[in-house]
Structure formats: C-alpha cells, structure tokens
Computed example of a mutant assay.
Amino acid sequence: MAETISRPEAAASPAAVARPRKRASRGLLRLRTPLPRGWGPAIAVGASVAIVLVWEFVARLGLTTPLFFPSPTAILSAMGRMFSDQHLLWHAWVSTLRVWGAFLLAAMLAIPIGVAMSGYRVIGAALEPAIDFIRYLPVPALVPLAIIWFGVGEETKIFLLWLGTFFQLVLLVADDMRRVPQEYVEIAYTVGANQGQVLKDVAFRAMLPGLVDNLRITLGWCWTYLIIAEIVAADSGLGFVIWAARRYMKTPEVMAGVVLIGVIGLATDQLLRLIHRRAFRYL
C-alpha cells in the first residue's frame, strides 16, 4: 500500500517542479516568442529615443567634450545648416546614385556568376579560389591601383564601391543556390523539364527569398565603402562633405554626414524588408 501511494506522489513531483519553470518562461523574453501586433515598431522607436535622450543628457552634463563627441541637438543643428548652406541634400542624392549604380552593376554580374558557380561544379572549382582571394583584399589598399587604372573620375568611385560588394555577393548567391534541395531538381527532371527550365523555374524561384535578403545585406555593405570611394579627388557626395569637415575639426558636421548616411541606409533597409515580407508571404 505504501508503494501504491508513493508512486503518484513521485509522478506528480516532476510536474510540480516543472510548472513554475513553465510559468517563468512565459512572456516576451521567451525564446522566439512572437511580439504582439505593433509592438515591434513601438519597441524599436522607444529604444532609439531612449538612446538619444541618454546621449543628450550625458553631453549636457559635460561628461563628454563637444569637440570629440557633440550632443544630438548640436548634430541636428549642424545638419540643418548644411542643408541650407552646403547643399547637403544634393550631396546625399549624388552619393545615393553612386551606391545604387555600383550595387546594381555588382548584382547583375554576381547573380548569374553565383548561380553558375553552384549549379556547375566545374565553374565553381575554377572561379571560387580567385574570388575568395580577392574578397579578402582591403579595398583602401587598392585605391592607388584604381586611380592608375581609371584616373580620378567617376569610374574610380563606382569601381571601388563595386569592388567592395561584388565578391561578397557572388559567394552569397552561390550559397543560396546550394541550399535549393536536390529533390526539387530531381522532381523537375522527372516531370520532363529541361536544364534551362530547372534553373529558371525551379532553382531560381526556390532561392529567390534568400537572394533578396542577401541583396539587402550587401547594399548595406556598399554604403560602408562610400567614404573610401568619395575621398578620391571628389567634389561632391556625403563622403566628400565628411572628409572636408574633418580637415577643420568640425565634428558636428562630420557626425551629421555620418548620421545622414545611417538614416538613408535605415530607410532603404526597412523598405526592402517590407518588399521581402510582401513578396514572400508564405515564409
């Protein structure tokens, strides 16, 4: 009888121990718990505003030197003057055109080459070592060569932006192609599809969500090379504005240019995220 009574108690004991743990794990901090509708943007805006307020508070207390770390209000004031006096909007437009021109050129070349590298092993074996080698080369070290090859015109700026994007993107495209399940390809051949149809209608469509996401990521990388590209005999662009302000230790203007690049990049990234969600609702 004693054994009969003790068994249910022993069986119930682990449940009693686990119940508080389950309760404790509930809530927003639970692993991969989805946020309620509308909470994500609200949390993002709230956290960003909090960071800016703390930054402003620290600057107003005099804990930082304005010459080296100006306050957000000083940066916004400098940005307002630059919009009115230094044609900052035009410089931002020029930089945006350069980045998108180099990025689209890199994408147009990287997508077919990356698909071919993954789809045909002989092409991958031939190209991957060279691409791996070049993508580890520091872009700033290649600025003198770019000037020798293209001069100091617009071609050099586009080339440097393209160089920092293409060799990264082509390997990401090849990885996206490799992730397409082999079963998809075999089923397509079974139902009578030819090689071109398998590539276009099966493999490319299967890799498209990952490809769009990688394009969004590499566009951000392209923006990171803007300063390098626009210090080469430039007289326009955000990189030129930042570099000119640096010469005279105008830190608020330097940070205003940097902040504007971040704002443009953030807006573009969020737009591409929205397009990705709308285009691939099934994910």
Score class of each variant (00 low, 15 high):
235 D>M: 03
180 V>I: 12
66 P>H: 05
216 R>W: 03
67 L>T: 13
184 Y>R: 12
15 A>Q: 03
77 S>P: 02
174 A>Q: 13
244 A>N: 13
42 A>I: 11
55 W>I: 06
108 M>S: 15
108 M>K: 12
44 A>W: 06
11 A>E: 12
211 L>H: 04
154 E>N: 05
40 G>M: 05
77 S>F: 01
268 T>W: 13
261 I>C: 15
60 R>M: 09
276 H>Q: 11
205 R>M: 10
24 A>K: 11
14 P>S: 10
97 L>A: 10
125 A>M: 10
187 I>N: 06
208 L>N: 00
50 A>N: 05
102 A>W: 13
259 V>T: 14
63 L>D: 11
97 L>W: 09
203 A>R: 15
158 I>S: 03
178 R>V: 14
182 Q>K: 12
109 L>I: 14
88 L>E: 06
272 L>M: 15
47 A>L: 13
104 L>A: 11
245 A>C: 06
169 L>K: 02
30 R>F: 15
127 L>I: 05
283 L>P: 04
82 M>R: 10
192 G>Q: 08
187 I>F: 09
210 G>E: 03
75 I>V: 15
116 A>R: 10
67 L>H: 09
194 N>M: 07
180 V>N: 06
195 Q>S: 13
88 L>I: 07
184 Y>F: 13
203 A>C: 09
26 R>Q: 15
276 H>C: 02
156 T>N: 01
229 A>T: 08
230 E>H: 01
246 R>V: 10
67 L>N: 11
106 A>Y: 11
144 P>M: 06
238 L>K: 01
68 F>K: 10
58 V>C: 09
135 R>Q: 03
88 L>V: 08
82 M>S: 12
269 D>K: 00
56 E>L: 08
81 R>D: 08
12 A>K: 07
56 E>F: 04
10 A>E: 09
165 T>V: 04
66 P>T: 08
65 T>M: 05
61 L>T: 08
62 G>Y: 03
180 V>F: 07
39 W>H: 07
159 F>D: 00
125 A>L: 12
51 I>S: 09
6 S>F: 01
27 G>S: 06
220 G>M: 01
240 F>A: 02
149 W>E: 00
262 G>W: 12
282 Y>N: 15
38 G>Y: 04
208 L>E: 02
106 A>H: 11
34 P>G: 09
193 A>Q: 07
262 G>A: 09
273 R>T: 14
10 A>Q: 08
42 A>N: 02
116 A>C: 11
26 R>L: 14
40 G>I: 03
123 I>F: 15
3 E>I: 11
233 A>K: 04
180 V>H: 04
241 V>Y: 02
78 A>M: 14
140 P>F: 00
85 D>V: 01
144 P>L: 06
97 L>R: 10
234 A>T: 03
44 A>Y: 05
78 A>Q: 11
44 A>Q: 10
196 G>I: 11
55 W>E: 07
1 M>V: 04
283 L>R: 14
56 E>V: 07
